[in-house]
Each structure stands twice: as structure tokens, then as C-alpha cells.
């Protein structure tokens, strides 16, 4: 099964590199994103970059957006290009196909974010290091690594779920964008719908737990969401339904 997941990833990466390798395919946009988050922002924020909570936010947001962009193509693209039927008629198991697609998207989004974090560190050290090695502070560094993995995982799981049913890549991208906009709105309104005392307790608990506590709560929430969405995607991955779609 692991080797089959690797086979699907090999093909996905091959296509991804061909598609994104050209300027028209998005290489330019990717370079801009990398430049902004690993050069421009660290230069602006200076040596505080390594201890700034903003890094945590970017570490969650960048992989989500970059993964979402890639994962929309996973099944909808195969369907649009008429390759899905043949893939489903192969000996690959449902899990191998699904995990192969998810792992490719996660490795892309997570890898890109880790690269940005690393380049950001290099930038800060080159410009503001003054002979001293600047490193991300404990919770910022570890939190960023975990959040970027889980952020990519969230986008990949949600994206695969949407892409499974979308008839075109464009439709999958649009649905995923709507979902990405709706999620914070729902969370915001959901929070406001809570009784006042509950909200007060929540704010109090968050304030009391500090940065580390908040990061752990977000990580725990993302783990639950990632696993839940992946489980739903697995349940909805049915060869017969995919053939008939």
C-alpha cells in the first residue's frame, strides 16, 4: 500500500512539476509568494521575525492556500482529462489513490511553507544577524511546523472531498474558495452564538493559557478537522459513484 501511495505521488509530482514549472503554469506566482513571505516580510519586521506570532499565522495560511490550489485538480482534473476511469480500472486500492493524492498536495503545501520559513530565517540572519545566529523561538518554530502541516492537511482533505464530486477543476476551485471564505465566517458567527458567559470563559481561558495554549488548541482543532474530513473523503470514495459521475 505504501509503495502504491508512492506510485501515485510519483505521477502527481511529475504532472505538477510540468504544469507549474512554466511561467504560465504558475511558477511566477509561486516565486512572488516565496519572495513576499521569505524576503519582504522578514526584512520589514526585522529580527523580531523569529519571535513574531505573525509567523504562526502565515505558517497556517500559506500551506492552506497553496495546497488548495493544487488539490482541486486531484480528481476533478483526472475526470476532466478522461484519465480517472482508467486509473480506477487499475489494481490500485481506493486508499492508495486517495492517500497518494492527499500526500502530494500536503507535501507541496507543507514543503513550500517550510522553504519559506527557512528562507525567511536566512534573510533575517543575513540582514539583521550581526554575527549572531537567530532562530525561531520554541513555540513559534515548532508551532509553525505543526500548523503548516495541519493547514496543508486541512486544505488537502477538504479539497479532495470537493474534487471527488466536482466535474471540472474550475468548479472544484470555486467550491473550495467559497468553503475557505465561509469557514471563518461560520466560526465567527458560531462564536457569537455562544452564551455570553461561555464566551467570557473561553476568552478568559485563552488569555490565561497564553501563546502556547492557543497554539495547542488550534493544533488540536486542526487534527480533529483533518481526520474528520479525511474519513469523510474515504467514505465518499466509491469507484461506482466516481464512474457514474
Amino acid at each position: 500500500m505504501i509503495s502504491d501511495v508512492g506510485t501515485v505521488m510519483w505521477k502527481e509530482w511529475r504532472e505538477l512539476l510540468i504544469q507549474r514549472g512554466s511561467l504560465r503554469g504558475g511558477a511566477l506566482g509561486l516565486l512572488v509568494v516565496v519572495a513576499v513571505f521569505s524576503i519582504v516580510l522578514p526584512l520589514q519586521i526585522g529580527s523580531h521575525w523569529v519571535e513574531s506570532p505573525m509567523v504562526l499565522f502565515f505558517a497556517g495560511w500559506v500551506p492552506f492556500v497553496s495546497t488548495a490550489h493544487v488539490v482541486a485538480d486531484s480528481f476533478a482534473g483526472e475526470r476532466e482529462r478522461h484519465t480517472l476511469e482508467t486509473l480506477l480500472a487499475s489494481r490500485l486500492s481506493n486508499q492508495a489513490i486517495l492517500f497518494g493524492k492527499v500526500c502530494t498536495a500536503v507535501s507541496y503545501g507543507w514543503g513550500l511553507t517550510l522553504l519559506i520559513l527557512l528562507l525567511g530565517l536566512v534573510t533575517v540572519n543575513l540582514v539583521h544577524g550581526r554575527g549572531e545566529l537567530l532562530l525561531y523561538q520554541g513555540i513559534i518554530g515548532l508551532g509553525s511546523i505543526a500548523l503548516s502541516l495541519l493547514g496543508a492537511g486541512l486544505a488537502a482533505s477538504a479539497g479532495v472531498l470537493i474534487s471527488l464530486r466536482a466535474s471540472t477543476v474550475r468548479q472544484a476551485q470555486q467550491t473550495l474558495s467559497i468553503a475557505a471564505w465561509l469557514l471563518p465566517i461560520i466560526l465567527g458567527y458560531g462564536g457569537r452564538a455562544l452564551p455570553v458567559e461561555w464566551r467570557a470563559h473561553l476568552v478568559e481561558a485563552i488569555t490565561a493559557s497564553g501563546m502556547t495554549g492557543i497554539v495547542f488548541v488550534v493544533i488540536a482543532t486542526l487534527i480533529v478537522l483533518d481526520i474528520g474530513l479525511l474519513a469523510v473523503a474515504m467514505a465518499r470514495f466509491q469507484r461506482a459513484r466516481l464512474i457514474l459521475d
Binding site: 482529462r81 478522461h82 484519465t83 476511469e85 486509473l87
Partner: peptide, 11 residues
């Protein structure tokens, strides 16, 4: 070899 060739045309 189904109705469509199922080839990855970018590869």
C-alpha cells in the same frame, strides 16, 4: 483500454 485512452497527455 476504455472509451477514452486514459493517457496523461502532459507526460
Amino acid at each position: 483500454l476504455l472509451e477514452h485512452s486514459g493517457l496523461y497527455e502532459r507526460l
